[in-house]
């Protein structure tokens, strides 16, 4: 069923990560994404993997669920990996040479780590942010972080409101699509068979009612908001005001340490001039 999509879905809970301020999590996620691209050798990657596993454990979300979120992008990962294998040129003799294809050790290593990088990226940011932050907290956090832009007359509040409304209505729309699909199937509509043109045509009885009800709902929502005197962020106060706590400070510090260590692991090894076999493998520059 269509309602089984998990990527970007919020899982309610009460872990440390759930309780962090959404602003902290947004900033840390950005820092995390940047740091993932810093890692450039096996040791740094191992450290990064450990950190991601640690965060997943802290979030108390089952590993199965987190891995399920990677499933939809597995094709993209494979694609990048294959491109890397064939397109990377390295020093010395190629590992395999066949017609115009040359595969170097460097290419294979690079493909593997590229895949690991993407997987860690998705796992880390979903555990840190999307799985553990409710959509409302997320938009509140974004609005608060972007509020300095109000000085240059950017309608930050409006954007945040649009975003939360859009997020709020995704499940409603999915449910409605399923309902109308079933209603038309009851009248003999066929969505899964036939030529491409026939299938596109079969969507008309689905899309028209969906559009009609979406417009109607938008109008009703607008009226309902106006009835409650909604005027953008003028004079509006929040029920749950965002506040930084000690735990946020702690996480900022831990994360700063994490980033610093990662940068050290990625930069320092090359300035010592050590040359032995194990050392070269451990810090093989990808």
């Amino acid at each position: 069923m269509i309602s089984d999509i998990t990527l970007g879905q919020f899982f309610p809970g009460n872990s440390v990560l759930h309780r962090l301020d959404p602003r902290t999590k947004i900033i840390l996620t950005v820092a995390f994404i940047v740091s993932v691209f810093f890692a450039n050798n096996p040791v740094a990657f191992a450290f990064l993997t450990l950190a991601v596993c640690f965060m997943t454990a802290l979030s108390r979300i089952s590993l199965k669920v987190v891995l399920k979120g990677i499933k939809p992008i597995i094709l993209i990962i494979l694609f990048t990996a294959i491109i890397n294998v064939f397109m990377t040129t390295g020093e010395g003799e190629p590992l395999i040479e066949f017609w115009i294809i040359k595969i170097y050790t460097r290419g294979i290593v690079r493909a593997v780590f590229m895949a690991v990088r993407v997987i860690l990226l998705i796992m880390g940011s979903s555990v840190l942010l999307t799985y553990t932050t409710s959509p409302i907290a997320l938009t509140d956090g974004l609005e608060s972080l972007l509020s300095p832009l109000k000085v240059i007359k950017l309608p930050v509040h409006t954007f945040a409101m649009m975003m939360s409304i859009a997020l709020r209505f995704i499940p409603t729309l999915v449910e409605e699509t399923e309902k109308i699909m079933n209603a038309q199937k009851s009248r003999g509509a066929d969505f899964s068979n036939g030529s491409l043109v026939e299938r596109a045509k079969a969507l008309i009885p689905l899309l028209i009612p969906l559009f009609v009800s979406s417009f109607k709902r938008a109008e009703e929502l607008a009226t309902a908001m106006e009835c409650r005197c909604y005027r953008g962020d003028k004079n509006r106060v929040k029920l749950n005001k965002l506040e930084y706590h000690g735990i946020d400070l702690a996480w900022f510090l831990i994360f700063a340490l994490f980033v610093a260590l990662l940068v050290c692991l990625s930069v320092l090894p090359y300035s010592f001039g050590v040359d032995n076999e194990l050392y070269n493998i451990l810090f093989y520059k990808i």
Binding site: I180, K185, P205, I208
Partner: peptide, 18 residues
């Protein structure tokens, strides 16, 4: 089967499109 067992869903007016 769907032609033989005709189903009118809840609030069926939302399925009109033509």
């Amino acid at each position: 089967v769907r032609y033989r067992v005709g189903l009118v869903m809840q609030y069926p007016e939302y399925q009109l499109f033509d």
